[in-house]
Amino acid sequence: MAGAKSDAPPGAGTSSQHAEEGGAATPPGGGLTRRELFQGLGAAAVVGGMLGDGRRARAATNPGGPEVLGPGKVPLKLTVNGSERALAIEPRTTLLDALRLELDLTGAKPVCDRGACGACTVLVDGAPVVSCMMLALDAQGRTIATVEGLAQGDKLSPLQQAFVEHDALQCGFCTPGMLMACAAVLAQHPKPTAEDVRRGVAGNLCRCGTYPKVVSATLAAAGPSSPTGRTGQGG
């Protein structure tokens, strides 16, 4: 059933759970979860109808609460694909926007803006995360891997190579998210079953219909199956 998205286990593509965890932990240097931030914005909008004033008001009227950053830009360091990048962002910036707008890493795609489609999936400390649901501030001090880091120079990873050879992509818009979700599957299950792969990408929507080939490509990238019969048909 379509409800599979919500059945996805932790570690699967949806990973709203990871984003929530990321938000709940106290990030280095403090910060707001996206939810708190939106609540603040919503209240300001209702009261004043003047968001600019609202944002400033919130910063000024929160003594004793958590440390307040912003509304202006704050400095931040992110470790992305093995290198440390310094940037300055508004605290409300999502990890997805930081990657795309500040670091020009446009592989991860904004599609649903609420963790429902997996197109913005990146790995944070090795786990798949929907980066539209995580504040960039909360990704500080953690290792972030994006689709741009999968290849070594011009040499594609076996997973990327398998996607190319199996035609596991059509328009390609969901492909970076699919790849990162599948990379996480392979990290966890070096010899996955088709079921393992399906669980891993259960939260990644594709509108062109690449699912069967995403599964077969990921199984192929894992190499020949072991004699215990851990194999499966695509789809």
């Binding site: 795309r100 707008l101 020009d104 890493l105 446009t106 592989g107 991860a108 795609k109 904004p110 994006t146 689709v147 741009e148 999968l150 290849a151 594609l156 990327q160 996607f163 190319v164 050879e165 035609d167 992509l169 390609g172 818009f173 492909t175 970076p176 790849l179």
Partner: peptide
């Protein structure tokens, strides 16, 4: 034949309208 733009799509280098900056 694997599609010619497959490498651009699996590396994130393919620039869609959404990615134009």
């Amino acid at each position: 034949v694997p599609r010619l733009d497959a490498v651009a799509k699996v590396t994130g280098r393919a620039k869609y309208t959404q990615d134009v900056m």
